[in-house]
Amino acid sequence: MTLDYFFVLIFFLSLIFLILRLWTRNSKKYTRSKDKDPASVLMVAGSGGHTREILSLATTLGKHYSPRYYIVAETDSVSEAKIHYCEKQRGGDDVPQEYQIFTIPRSREVKQSYLTSILTTCRASLSSFPLVFKLQPDVILCNGPGTCIPICFAGLLLKWFSVKDTYIVYVESFCRVTSMSLSGKLLYRFVDAFFVQWPELAEKYPGAKYMGPVVS
């Protein structure tokens, strides 16, 4: 009987500890130097339009976001070429441009059925988790290809286990006007900042930030 009480006590103590941890982390305010303390950022390029959108965002990030890690699907050589092209355009800065491209298996090919998608998503997760744990980025930036689901959850694990306070930003794709993508629905409640680009979607998801279209 006393043992039961003991466990209940332990349970509540750890709960209080966890709440305190989360609370103090959220309320902490600090400043960061652009020169001395750059932030590493991991960006998930999907294919086609997703890549275009993420690169549109990437090119406006200052040089204090370094190194920049890009994740592309294995079968997507076009996205890789686009990333190299955009990174070259950045040139002109004095510091050497630090970026790296990693490939992981696709979660879903266009036109693939939902059932086999589950299997391929598992395969994609297996290679994205170790990658995120290894890189431990300061920021994860993504815009909704299936690949970003395991990447973001790996980032959440880093946070929950207090390994790294990774800031996760999700920008719902420009093509989502009235309905949220599956990735968006899954990640909406968990990420640190969630952007939508159309007022129709902002109305349905009041927790999302809306500042008009943010990709060009």
Binding site: Y30, T31, T60, A193, M211, G212, P213, V214, V215, S216
Partner: peptide, 15 residues
Amino acid sequence: GEPAKVARFLDSALG
């Protein structure tokens, strides 16, 4: 669209 808005938001979020 204005991607710089997201960059500015991120700057302030990261301090």
